[in-house]
């Protein structure tokens, strides 16, 4: 990893770390920022499978749910701390991902089948956990309300979760940069550009796709554990197809795999804020307005700018920078 890779991460971290203070720890804004950060980590993790490997994975909610249930069940039944439960949840999610990924990553199988298999997996896990009374069931299972203890990682406010997610985001960003610079990253890029050519060159396509999937599923499973801690309970509705779709939409609109990785959190920030604004202003009159917005923006971006918005940000950034430099030159 090069020093030039680290600079933007450090800058981003510093900026994000200061944000809750900028809104003076107002609960609403901190919670809003926490959800934005939550989706940012998911989308950045999604970049590994959706961007680098070019597989349209729609199972984010499956991994989130599995991570949440693993962590939560261990915590409520055996009093196992989330510190251990969260990574274990990641492992369970990765195991499930392998189960779906192995058959669907067979060489030559259509990408669409993978997307279908993953989005269906969310619905199915929801049903299975509803039926599985021992662990799931229709009733909410509450996590112990022992706030402010490091062992239980439960807090009354949202700022602690915000910083936990920030730490995760930094790790996921580093992971992305690292994979991109590694052999795996180059192979994945080759597979994405032309799978047949990659196979002919002797790259084991299935193996590398699976590797990307497992990394992604593990991270998402971990984030799922954190999600359960924030929401405070377990319910089969943690397997929510809309979460999956939202992650993929943000990833595609942000230009996963094409441009800069920072475009993903930026897109999440912009789109989630707009959608929340729509919900809280017009949501009372036009139900689902924020969801219509997601649909419109995805369709429009895919049709008009299939490479996503990352390039647009870069151009914007370049222009602002040039303007600033010009002003400085003019003023000095």
């Amino acid at each position: 990893m090069r020093a030039s890779d680290l600079k933007p991460i450090v800058a981003l971290t510093a900026m994000l770390a200061a944000l809750p203070l900028a809104v003076r720890m107002n609960n609403y804004y901190v919670l809003l920022l926490t959800w934005i950060l939550y989706y940012s980590t998911l989308v950045t993790a999604w970049n590994v499978i959706g961007g680098l490997a070019g597989q349209l994975d729609l199972a984010a909610a499956s991994y989130i749910g599995l991570g949440a249930y693993t962590m939560g069940t261990l915590l409520t039944r055996l009093d196992v701390t989330p510190w251990v439960g969260i990574p274990l949840g990641g492992l369970v999610a990765a195991g499930f991902a392998a189960l779906v990924g192995y058959p669907t990553f067979r060489f030559g199988l259509k990408e669409a089948w993978y997307a279908l298999a993953t989005i269906s997996s969310v619905v199915v896990l929801q049903k299975l956990f509803l039926v599985w009374e021992g662990v799931g069931g229709p009733e909410e299972r509450y996590l112990p309300a022992r706030y402010g203890e490091l062992y239980y990682l439960r807090f009354r406010g949202y700022a602690p979760y915000y910083y936990i997610l920030l730490a995760v985001l930094v790790m996921v960003l580093l992971l992305n940069v690292k994979i991109r610079r590694s052999k795996t990253g180059y192979y994945l890029l080759a597979i994405r550009e032309n799978e047949e050519a990659a196979e002919i060159l002797g790259i084991d396509v299935r193996k590398y796709k699976l590797r990307a999937l497992l990394i992604y599923a593990f991270v998402t499973g971990c984030i799922g554990g954190i999600f359960a801690l924030i929401s405070g309970y377990l319910h089969p509705h943690h397997f929510d197809t809309w979460t999956s779709l939202q992650v993929a939409i943000l990833g595609i609109v942000g230009g996963a795999g094409v441009g800069s990785i920072y475009s993903l959190p930026a897109t999440t920030f912009i789109i989630y804020s707009i959608s929340e604004l729509l919900r809280s202003t017009l949501g009372g009159w036009i139900p689902g307005i924020h969801l219509i917005f997601y649909g419109v923006i995805l369709t429009v971006v895919v049709l008009l700018k299939p490479e996503g918005l990352s390039e647009t940000y870069e151009r914007l950034y370049g222009r602002i920078r040039a303007a600033l430099l010009r002003r400085r030159a003019g003023g000095g």
């Binding site: 107002n26 609960n27 609403y28 919670l31 919900r279 809280s280």
Partner: peptide, 22 residues
């Protein structure tokens, strides 16, 4: 003042926090 819970836990919490803080 009516807020949409977006039919989700996430939205219900957001809505309650927004109501209370604003």
């Amino acid at each position: 003042v009516v807020e949409d819970s977006k039919d989700s836990i996430e939205g219900a919490k957001l809505a309650a926090e927004k109501l209370i803080s604003q």
